[in-house]
């Protein structure tokens, strides 16, 4: 671990702890939402797919907030681990979904070299997590064996849901949090900040 001037993008303890705690807050929300989510399942019309997007929220949210490499992956993984430890329905499945979704989400931010944190990138990251979940679902839930119209319904709902809940919503949340002033100390310190000392 080198201690050069440019290492300020490395995660420090505070970044790690904040990311995990954010994941826990969402994990708690997931746990509270879980029953609601389970309730809309029985109709087979994939109304749950619309809500499914909320499961991807931790990664884009943490990335928008802390803006450092690794936080998106860490957040989604920690959220999944928390869900497993809180004994949410599905148990160990969550862990695998979390790992893959987190990795896909992270990849989007990495592709822009952690320089862009716009609404578009957030939505794209949510969309990437969605792709990850579909890959797993294809194998796990036999997606290709659903009737055509039903499969399309499912996919459309998921896309809408993920962009809405994990693209727009976290973006709005971060904007809201910025107003409270707590986000300031989370972001990397810039050169301009040092210029004030002159």
């Amino acid at each position: 671990m080198s201690k050069g001037k440019n290492t300020n993008l490395r995660l420090n303890l505070s970044d790690i702890l904040v990311t995990i705690v954010i994941a826990l807050v969402f994990g708690l929300v997931f746990r509270l939402l879980g029953p609601v989510y389970d309730l809309v399942k029985p109709f087979g019309l994939h109304l749950d797919a619309l809500l499914y997007g909320i499961w991807f929220i931790a990664a884009p949210f943490a990335a928008l907030l802390i803006r450092k490499p690794g936080v998106a992956f860490l957040a989604e993984t920690a959220a999944a681990l928390a869900e497993m430890l809180f004994a949410g329905s599905g148990g160990v499945i969550n862990l695998y979904y979390g790992l893959l979704q987190g990795a896909f989400s992270e990849a989007v931010f990495a592709a822009w070299r952690y320089k862009k944190f716009s609404l578009g990138i957030a939505s794209l990251s949510a969309f990437a997590a969605l792709i990850a979940s579909i890959i797993l679902d294809a194998g796990y839930a036999y997606l290709p064996l659903l009737a055509g119209w039903n499969l399309i319904l499912y996919l459309v709902f998921r896309v809408i849901g993920s962009v809405l809940f994990s693209g727009l919503f976290p973006y709005a949340l971060v904007k809201g949090l910025e107003k409270t002033g707590v986000t300031q100390s989370l972001r990397p310190v810039t050169k301009e900040d040092y210029n004030v000392l002159k």
Binding site: Q184, S185, R187, V189, T190, D193, V196, L197
Partner: peptide, 11 residues
């Protein structure tokens, strides 16, 4: 000692 908070105009 000179110290400022990030995004603040003054020390």
């Amino acid at each position: 000692l000179r110290l400022a908070f990030p995004k603040k105009k003054s020390m």
